[in-house]
Design a protein around this nucleic acid. Structure first.
Lengths: 195, 195
DNA sequence: AGATTATCTGAACGCGCGTTCATTTCAAGG
DNA sequence: CCTTGAAATGAACGCGCGTTCAGATAATCT
């Protein structure tokens, strides 16, 4: 396994990234050594550098890929049009997408401070783009009279925090199915935004 | 500065704890060395051990103190009685309390995985106690018909996530005063829970 | 089979880690 | 002025860190 030839690959090798993602999510970037990641892959530490420039690139690559996947997936799914329908689609999408990527989400939220300044700026820009997707829907709904929103930015942040919070408590096989959770959250979000 | 005599103090020295809290919040527990904390206090690393058993105790003490302060402060403020009034009091209290302790809150959420198993259990128990405060209010309101809540636990988690989320975006001197933020969040929470 | 290239090892580098402890500094009380 | 004991130093300990690289190994192609 490895890159084709010459200089190191632009994209972290998938097995290395998967191992790093698991470990970063469970123990945190700073607490995970290259040797631990290598052991998880079944290789010596030096071999990792065939797939990644350094440890920081490992973190940045997975965070950036996650944010891009989030934005792309929503663009694919965005029905456009009626703000109420768009928001419902987004709420359900957000919960589903985040629940399917618990490790990546955890890392995206917890490891921002371990990014170099340049990388921090890049990831933060992606986050802002997603926040503006939500804020845009709320603004449209406010303009059309569908939502009774005083401050679209504040409400967007409130909705995102609420939805992402599912990750901290929901466990598969629990009392509620994910479909049920989706339903109830959408109900709460909708009610909190209409007069 | 230091303990009275004999064995190390049960309570981390306040200056050491303040320095550790600042640094843990900004760089993370794993990335902060005892030498960095010592430098922040203006002392050599060895001197820290006059005030704390070890690095782990530094983390646990501040997290435990934070959770106890949260629970005590609410007990002091809890008006009891009408669930709607209690919930409003809690929403405003939660936002204010958390905004005044941004570092401690950040640590309480981010550093759970750096606790030893015993310490993790202890802190998690405190968290559950607070979650049950909120869940209790929602259950009462459901029973009395004040709230249209399908699952009190889920709604409690949703509310807590939404409220704590304020910490991630609110900055003093911004567009909105904290009073205004309190107002809008309470409005959203209330609407999301009534029919 | 032999050559070529991709893949990986294992040792090494300088460094900072958490923690301990004998020793020194320093303020206060007699 | 001398004693006491608290407060802090600074060196030391063994260890694991991120990263590099010369060399070994394994796969592929002619």
């Amino acid at each position: 396994m490895a890159r084709k030839t010459g200089s190191h690959s632009e994209i972290t090798g998938p097995r290395v990234r998967a191992a790093a993602e698991r470990l970063f999510a469970r123990q945190g970037y700073a607490a995970v050594s290259m040797r631990k990641i290598a052991a998880e892959v079944g290789v010596q530490a030096g071999a990792l550098y065939l797939y990644t420039k350094d440890k920081q690139a490992l973190l940045f690559d997975m965070m950036d890929a996650h944010m891009v996947a989030l934005l792309d997936a929503w663009q694919e799914l965005d029905p456009g049009g009626d703000p109420m329908m768009r928001l419902e689609a987004l709420v359900r999408f957000h919960i589903r997408f985040h629940m399917e990527r618990q490790d990546a989400v955890f890392i995206a939220y917890m490891e921002l401070r371990n990014l170099t300044p340049d990388n921090y700026v890049a990831i933060t820009a992606r986050r802002k783009a997603y926040e503006q997707v939500v804020e845009g829907i709320l603004s449209d709904g406010k303009a059309s009279g569908a939502f009774a929103v005083e401050d679209a930015h504040l409400s967007a942040m409130a909705v995102i925090a609420m939805l992402t919070g599912v990750n901290t408590w929901y466990r598969e096989g629990g009392r509620l199915s994910l479909e049920r959770v989706e339903e109830i959250y959408w109900d709460m979000v909708r009610k909190s935004l209409v007069g």
